[in-house]
Design a protein around this nucleic acid. Sequence first.
DNA 1: CGATCGTTTGACGGTGCTCAATCACCGTGG
DNA 2: CCACGGTGATTGAGCACCGTCAAACGATCG
Lengths: 280, 280
Amino acid sequence: MLPVTALPEDPPANRDAWFARRCAVIPAAAVPLRELLHAIGADSDAQVPEAPFAIPVWRVRSGAALLHEGARPDAVHVVRSGTFKCLKTSEDGYEQVLSFAGQGEILGFESTWRGLQLTSAIALEESTVCSLPLRELDLWRQLSPALDHALQFALGRQLARAGEIAEMMAAVAAEVRLARFLVWLSGCMAEHGQSPRRLYLRMSRRDIASLLAVAHETVSRSFSTLVELGLLQVNNREVEILDPAGLRACTRSTRGLPDELPRVAPGRHRAAPRLNVVAA
Amino acid sequence: MLPVTALPEDPPANRDAWFARRCAVIPAAAVPLRELLHAIGADSDAQVPEAPFAIPVWRVRSGAALLHEGARPDAVHVVRSGTFKCLKTSEDGYEQVLSFAGQGEILGFESTWRGLQLTSAIALEESTVCSLPLRELDLWRQLSPALDHALQFALGRQLARAGEIAEMMAAVAAEVRLARFLVWLSGCMAEHGQSPRRLYLRMSRRDIASLLAVAHETVSRSFSTLVELGLLQVNNREVEILDPAGLRACTRSTRGLPDELPRVAPGRHRAAPRLNVVAA
DNA sequence: CGATCGTTTGACGGTGCTCAATCACCGTGG
DNA sequence: CCACGGTGATTGAGCACCGTCAAACGATCG
């Protein structure tokens, strides 16, 4: 019943330490429905009637896997706090990050399609999730229209997110991809009432690189370039957006970086590759 | 140059012809709920009770836009027949294709999130869709649990699709991207009981290029390479998969093309770039 | 404090983007 | 019937962005 069950591989040496980290998904006190709705962030202004059931909550330690690719699903989760990365592991061991999920996002809903987890979800920090057991899901939705609406709302957002991620990966230049990612992240922060200018990256450069489908060295270099352009200030995982408008300008260009940006330090000239521009 | 014209501007000369194409979304006879469930393809073995409402159907002419980015949504659509491409148009006129949608796929559900269409949907051939008016959606789902289940099922599949698309774009080598796309398409064909080996591409090379985030010339070249490898036979938009296993092998490699593949004609030697392989 | 991992930067080579020309296909009109 | 323009697909040439390899530095944790 535990979300964490059997693992595909087993490392030989540090088995127990490894096991401890992976199994760090522990139950916490159940919460009223109201809390779940608040996490999802749908228009919960209206007082919702108390539901005749409580929402189970799990605590997930940093680095622990909430969902395991290939496992049988038993619940759908809504992120209550923290951050996750969702990924698929291919046979050659490559981890393809598909998305980062923050508060209010749904994890594991795709598993309802074929009864198999299609992605793994790994906590990037201490996190908590509201759990909706598949056995109860339909009943609960039926009992509480508010829950049903919130779920549909969250699913719509989830699909929108997928499109946003595709847009990031679609950019040609690596700097543009990174800029889009940062703007996206900034928007996520703003949605949750946090500062959209000061970001703390919960994920490693490698994870970002995987999401953007570039090498992690390229992510580093792109950070440096954006700093050179005076758009950012970066200190390891702390990022401050100095020029939101300029960053958005990078975002918008399907081609290379716009040359008209004031460059703090003189850099190499950059050609402007055009890709599939219709009607020039 | 205009792929299928999702232009925000209006061409001056052929205004009426253009208008005619865009507005080629015409009502057709409503169908019983059973038809919609069949299109979605959920386990509809059980006899579903007839619903007290009929599902509106729209016919969409080839090249016509069912959904317009930025418009107010009034319905969610389920593809009953035909194919669509979903895209976002950026300010510089670039059309980013986000997905291709075939039978059973949901179009426009993301619009329920913020009350705005986030993508356009353009028919790639003569198509029909079942329409679920947003005003009635909740009521109908309440009246018919079968419809509700089918929708949740389809939403789960939709999210899974999003992951699959991200996987395509994530591949490093262009040939691998194309191979993944073809395998994906082949799987879609198989799902609908069609031959998974003989594909007819409803979309142009340019559309494929946009989805895979490469130049359309590169798509052409990648087709040629896969033909050279003896994996495909290509005649314009007709594609026959000669070696499904070999094609899947390409798919699996996160790196470049596997060299052990028998090459019909001797080609240039290809290095095997590795990207973010964990634990070597 | 040492070991391990994450991050950054450099150099080099290759894949893929741009530009360009050519060919095939189609509906139109002379 | 056959030019004719237009669109889409294919192929070639050149160059530059980015992936690989490598090394150095910094951060984190036991």
